[in-house]
Computed example of a mutant assay.
Amino acid sequence: MTITVRPLRPEVRADVEGFSHVRHLALPFFVVTPDSIAYDVAHIHPDAQYRPLVAEEDGEVIGTAQVGLVHDSPDPGQGYVNVYVHPERTRRGAGTLLVRTAEEYLAERGATRLFAWILDAPGNRAFAERHGYREGRSAHFLRLDLAHGTLPPLQTPPPGVELRTAADFADDPRPLFELDAETASDEPSDVAYEFTDYEAWLEETWNHPLLNHELTSVAVVDGRPAAFSAARTDGGTRYGTVMTGTARAFRGRGLAKLAKNDALHRARAAGLTEAFTGNDTGNGPMLAINKWFGYEICATEVRYVRELG
């Protein structure tokens, strides 16, 4: 049976459904839908040169790759290739074809260093190392049973602090952009980011179909967003925290925990049953907060890097 690799066709429903299905099977702790796949292709910044790929066998999508440039980093020449193959279709060569095609595409666009997230399993690690990638940072996926778990009780905000939702900032979300940009730049990472493009943030984050404004909680101090917990939902029962953070001037006051607790209670009240999040393994403070909520580590991934040329 012949396996072929080609670009994803976001306008073809079977393509985005196949891409989403493989991603869900290979990475079940990540909230994704066919519509979100199509939206990403249409709205990601053009400088990212984003080109998702699919591996196909007998008309079935059995592998996927997210491929692009890290355009918002001050360090030029960085790219990414994240490959996921249907768990029942491995060892057919789909992963190798996806990597090879992605590397050629990125090299043609000036990439000299490639990053790839790999689930922490011996076979996956060996695959990455065979292709010239070396081990870097690691991160945990965490899961919380919202339906049957016990959340900490809702907390009363301290004096001067108000809890709102992202929906309250619909008329002017710029303060949330500024908070998101500041907290993202402080996250542990082996890639530096400069998050300065407000219009791109509106397209890629604020207007994203999975971002749930009503379930994204914001702690406000003196009218200024000081901490937040951003939520994505899949239209079903799955909820993902994609960012939780506090502005530097307000850290050490428990505001991130306050906002995330509020968001999780909102999610459970809305009927969501599973909550997911992810943390760098070196992010001790956030891992401790998530343990307090009852999250449990369900998988670990490792970021591998390869120098081209």
Rank of each mutant, 00 (worst) to 15 (best):
M1D: 11
T4I: 15
R6G: 01
L8A: 05
L8T: 03
E11S: 14
D15S: 09
V16L: 13
F19H: 08
S20G: 08
S20M: 08
L25D: 02
P28V: 04
P28A: 06
F30E: 15
I37M: 13
I37S: 05
Y39R: 01
D40K: 12
V41I: 05
P46W: 09
P46L: 09
D47A: 13
Y50G: 02
A55T: 06
A55Q: 07
G59H: 05
V61A: 02
I62T: 03
G63A: 07
T64L: 14
A65W: 08
D72H: 14
P76D: 10
P76Y: 12
V83S: 02
V83P: 02
P87K: 09
R89M: 11
R91K: 12
G95D: 02
T96Y: 01
L97S: 00
L97R: 04
L98C: 01
L98Y: 03
V99R: 01
Y105K: 00
L106I: 03
R109S: 03
T112V: 06
D120W: 10
A121R: 15
A121G: 07
G123Y: 07
G123N: 09
R125P: 00
A126P: 02
A126S: 11
E129I: 04
H131I: 04
G132R: 04
G132D: 08
Y133M: 02
R137M: 13
A139M: 15
F141I: 02
L142M: 13
L142A: 11
D145T: 00
L146Q: 01
L146G: 00
H148V: 01
P152H: 01
Q155Y: 00
E162W: 09
E162K: 11
E162R: 15
T165S: 13
A166L: 14
D168A: 15
D172N: 15
P173R: 00
E178H: 05
E182Y: 04
E182H: 04
E182T: 01
E182M: 05
A184H: 15
P188R: 09
A192Y: 14
A192G: 10
Y198M: 05
E203N: 11
E204I: 07
P209T: 10
L210F: 01
L210V: 00
L211S: 02
N212I: 05
H213I: 06
L215K: 03
L215W: 09
V218E: 06
A219F: 12
V220P: 13
R224D: 12
A227M: 07
G235S: 06
G236S: 14
G236E: 15
G236D: 13
Y239I: 00
Y239R: 00
V242Q: 14
M243N: 10
A247M: 08
R248D: 11
G254E: 12
K257V: 12
N261Y: 02
A263S: 11
G271C: 07
L272G: 00
L272V: 03
A275G: 03
A275S: 11
F276A: 01
N283E: 13
G284W: 11
G284V: 15
A288H: 15
A288S: 12
I289V: 15
N290P: 04
N290W: 05
I297K: 12
C298W: 03
E301W: 13
R303S: 06
